[in-house]
Write a protein that binds this DNA or RNA. Structure first.
Length: 582
DNA sequence: GCACGCCCGT
């Protein structure tokens, strides 16, 4: 059905309105000239008001209710409008149910928007109903809807369902692969993402796009998979995946997270359209790799370029100060961020400050800062302070902090271990026994730490005392040999103050088989002298493994880079880049 | 050429 010239003129007028007031003026004009309730014009008007940038849900709901002959297009617009955020998604589903109730025929768009509502409010049941209706109406041939459905299942932790749909798909497009990848990431199957990327490249019909690369780079960063990340970088360059800045921003983050800040800087340097995200990524990268001064310099350069910092920029800047022990600078930035840049401190900013002050030994100041916050402190914040209590062996505050964690019902084994370590460092064995008994009584399990190492583009994961690896015999033999060599070189296992596995009867035994040692042994096994071994650990490295790594780097002539959480330890020739263990 | 869609950067 074609539309008249007059209708077209009015619609282009509606589209040209960039302000609500203009639209409202137009509204009264259209009412006066009896054009408003023309279905074509009404739809155009409603969608202008229901969707960003002028989105006004209550206003659009009101005029929608005034319209006497709602059709599927108008309902779609209303469902779509309400699917955009969590608060309104339930209302979106009400519109969907109303449409079904009125017997109006839905289309693929309707289901896509309704599914999007279900994802926002995590409602599996409604989604299942929509799925069966999609099948009944024969709408599953719509590829957008198909991938929405996959994403819906993935979002609701039904990864198996998403996989099933993917397997059934006759023509997988790029988005379907992307949804599958994000599904793996969500469900903790990060290591399976790499083969998926390779399969996608070898598939016919579609190739990885910018979104694929964003996903895969995120996985590389998280798994410390430099080799695969470099491969993705090559793919990006060779295939011209540079539609926006996003991919390059992610490359900066990936290289930084893999401990290659030089590579990150190479990418950064060659970008001629750096935005606030680019700068923030670079600043954070420099910060986490221990280049605090350079991070601050980058921040100042960014200001000179006329880019306004945002909250994430300050997270980077403050973490730079905390990683490099720049207490005064940190205080200065923290105090100026709101007044000079209009960025209100959030929980991450406070967290950086607590870390900064805590590491500097200003424990009371850190504690006061937490208590002065307008926002509720979370478990991470208390844990940061507890870590500082461990460094400075501050028993009294450590006990207070543990109580705060218990109040939050967030206490974990690691927290008690930190407290335990404070007591044992001070030789307070009665307290050590007491805490261990407490942990036993409460049934608190230590979560096994894991270390990952990449070899030939594949990521291997080890946990303490791991026996699951196919080459375990070789690895354990190598570890024994290393221990022997290190003993000859004068290494003594330090077991007095640090132990992560409190259930162990034999500390010495557990030390020998910490996950990072297994990963390093595997690395020595696989690589020739002169190469770099990169290990990522989810918990903090212990002082014994730190010494061990130092020695191995000298005796076996390897560079060893260990990332524990978000800090890097670079070992070379028997030295570590960080001056002390902490 | 009447609106509307899936995956997404620090």
């Amino acid at each position: 059905m074609s539309i008249s010239h007059q209708e077209r003129t009015i619609i282009s007028l509606i589209k040209s309105c960039t302000k609500k007031s203009h639209l409202l003026q137009l509204h009264s004009h259209l009412l006066r000239t009896s054009n408003f309730y023309n279905p074509t014009i009404f739809l155009s008007f409603l969608s202008r008001f229901a969707l960003p940038p002028l989105r006004d849900l209550s206003y659009s709901s009101r005029i929608f209710a005034e319209f006497s002959q709602p059709n599927v297009s108008l309902y779609n617009t209303m469902i779509r409008a309400h699917s955009l955020n969590h608060e309104s998604a339930r209302t979106g589903l009400l519109f969907y149910q109303e449409l079904l109730h009125l017997g109006i025929l839905s289309n693929a768009f309707t289901s896509t928007f309704a599914l999007s509502c279900c994802m926002k409010i995590k409602c599996l049941l409604n989604g299942l109903q929509i799925h069966s209706r999609i099948l009944k109406d024969g709408h599953l041939c719509d590829s957008f809807l198909f991938t929405s459905l996959m994403d819906f299942y993935s979002c609701l932790d039904k990864g198996a369902e998403a996989c099933k749909l993917f397997d059934e798909m006759s023509h997988r497009d790029t988005v379907a692969w992307n949804v599958m990848i994000s599904c793996y990431m969500r469900s903790g199957r990060k290591r399976d993402v790499f083969p998926l990327f390779d399969m996608m490249r070898n598939s016919n019909g579609c190739q990885p796009d910018d979104v694929t690369c964003l996903h895969v780079l995120q996985v590389c960063a998280s798994l410390n998979a430099l080799e695969f990340g470099t491969k993705v970088h090559k793919y990006i360059v060779e295939n011209g995946i540079n539609t926006g800045r996003n991919v390059f921003n992610s490359l900066i983050a990936m290289y930084s997270r893999c401990g290659c800040v030089e590579k990150a800087y190479d990418v950064f340097k060659q970008m001629d359209n750096k935005d606030v995200v680019t700068w923030s990524a670079m600043i954070s990268g420099l910060a986490s790799n221990g280049y605090g001064r350079d991070a601050i310099e980058a921040f100042e350069l960014m200001l000179k370029e006329g880019i306004s910092p945002d909250d994430q920029t300050f997270t980077g800047v403050l973490s730079a100060c905390s990683h490099s022990g720049l207490v005064n600078e940190g205080r200065k930035f923290f105090n100026s961020m709101k007044t000079n840049f209009g960025v209100r401190p959030n929980i991450h900013h406070y967290g950086c400050m607590v870390d900064l002050l805590g590491r500097a030994g200003l424990l009371e100041e850190a504690y006061d800062l937490i208590n002065s916050m307008k926002i509720q402190p979370d478990a991470t914040m208390w844990r940061t302070l507890l870590g500082a209590c461990r460094i400075h062996l501050h028993v009294a505050l450590g006990e207070r902090v543990i109580n705060n964690l218990i109040e939050l019902k967030a206490q974990e084994a690691g927290d008690y271990v930190l407290l335990l370590n404070i007591y044992s460092s001070l030789g307070n064995w009665d307290k050590v026994i007491e805490v261990r008994k407490l942990m036993k009584d409460k049934g608190i399990q230590t979560t096994p730490a894991s270390s990952t190492i990449e070899w030939k583009g594949k990521v291997y994961e080890f946990v303490a005392d791991d026996i699951s690896h196919p080459r375990k015999k070789e690895i354990y033999e190598m570890l024994d040999e290393i221990n022997q060599q290190l003993r000859i070189a004068g290494y003594v296992s330090e077991i007095t103050s640090e132990f992560n596995n409190v259930d162990s009867r034999s500390k010495q035994y557990v030390h020998s088989y910490h996950s990072e040692k297994l990963a390093i042994a595997f690395g020595i096994l696989c690589t020739p002298p002169g190469t770099t071994i990169r290990v990522a650990k989810d918990l903090r490295i212990c002082v014994d493994c730190h010494n061990f790594s130092k020695m191995v780097s000298a005796v076996y002539d390897r560079k060893i880079v260990i990332r524990d959480r978000n800090r890097f330890h670079h070992f070379q020739g028997g030295q570590c880049s960080c001056n002390n263990y902490w």
